[in-house]
Amino acid sequence: MWMIEQAKKAGIQFNDPLINARQYNVVTNPIVHDRTGNSVLISDGQSGKVGPYFDPGRDFAWANDNNSSNRINQHLTGMNATELAQYLKDYADPKAEAQPNAQAWHLGLNWKVTLQFQNAQYNASNPGKFEKLLKLEQQFTTDPNCKPKEVLGGCKALTEFQKLKSNDVTGTATIVYRSTREDEAIQITNYLNWIKANYGTALTFKAANGVKAK
Score class of each variant (00 low, 15 high):
74 Q>P: 00
155 C>A: 07
107 L>E: 07
157 A>M: 05
66 N>H: 10
88 L>Y: 03
89 K>E: 10
119 N>K: 10
182 E>C: 01
56 P>V: 04
105 W>A: 11
77 T>A: 02
185 A>W: 05
130 F>Y: 15
66 N>D: 15
98 A>C: 06
126 N>H: 12
123 N>R: 03
103 Q>G: 09
60 F>K: 06
65 D>V: 07
163 K>E: 12
150 E>P: 00
117 F>E: 05
160 E>N: 08
105 W>N: 13
68 S>L: 14
157 A>T: 07
55 D>E: 15
115 L>K: 13
50 V>R: 09
182 E>V: 09
139 Q>S: 13
164 L>S: 08
161 F>A: 08
111 W>C: 04
130 F>C: 07
182 E>D: 11
164 L>A: 05
162 Q>C: 09
191 Y>D: 02
57 G>Q: 03
129 K>L: 13
53 Y>V: 10
140 F>M: 01
161 F>R: 06
76 L>P: 01
127 P>S: 04
141 T>I: 11
145 N>H: 11
102 A>Y: 10
53 Y>N: 09
90 D>M: 06
188 I>N: 00
116 Q>E: 14
142 T>N: 12
120 A>H: 11
101 N>D: 15
123 N>C: 01
142 T>D: 04
145 N>V: 06
66 N>F: 06
150 E>S: 01
74 Q>R: 07
76 L>M: 03
56 P>S: 02
60 F>W: 12
160 E>P: 00
171 G>Q: 04
130 F>N: 13
170 T>N: 15
79 M>E: 08
171 G>A: 02
66 N>W: 01
101 N>Q: 13
174 T>C: 08
131 E>I: 12
83 E>D: 13
187 Q>L: 06
155 C>H: 04
156 K>C: 00
71 R>E: 07
86 Q>L: 10
157 A>W: 06
181 R>T: 08
125 S>N: 12
144 P>G: 07
171 G>T: 03
136 L>G: 03
105 W>P: 06
183 D>Q: 14
124 A>K: 11
87 Y>K: 15
190 N>E: 10
159 T>G: 09
120 A>R: 11
82 T>N: 15
96 A>Q: 14
168 D>G: 06
132 K>A: 14
49 K>G: 13
162 Q>I: 13
77 T>G: 02
97 E>W: 06
87 Y>Q: 14
181 R>F: 09
168 D>L: 03
55 D>I: 10
79 M>N: 01
91 Y>C: 01
153 G>Q: 05
121 Q>K: 15
157 A>F: 07
111 W>R: 12
143 D>L: 05
75 H>L: 08
112 K>H: 01
65 D>F: 13
112 K>I: 02
128 G>E: 02
129 K>I: 13
84 L>W: 03
90 D>V: 09
156 K>S: 12
102 A>D: 14
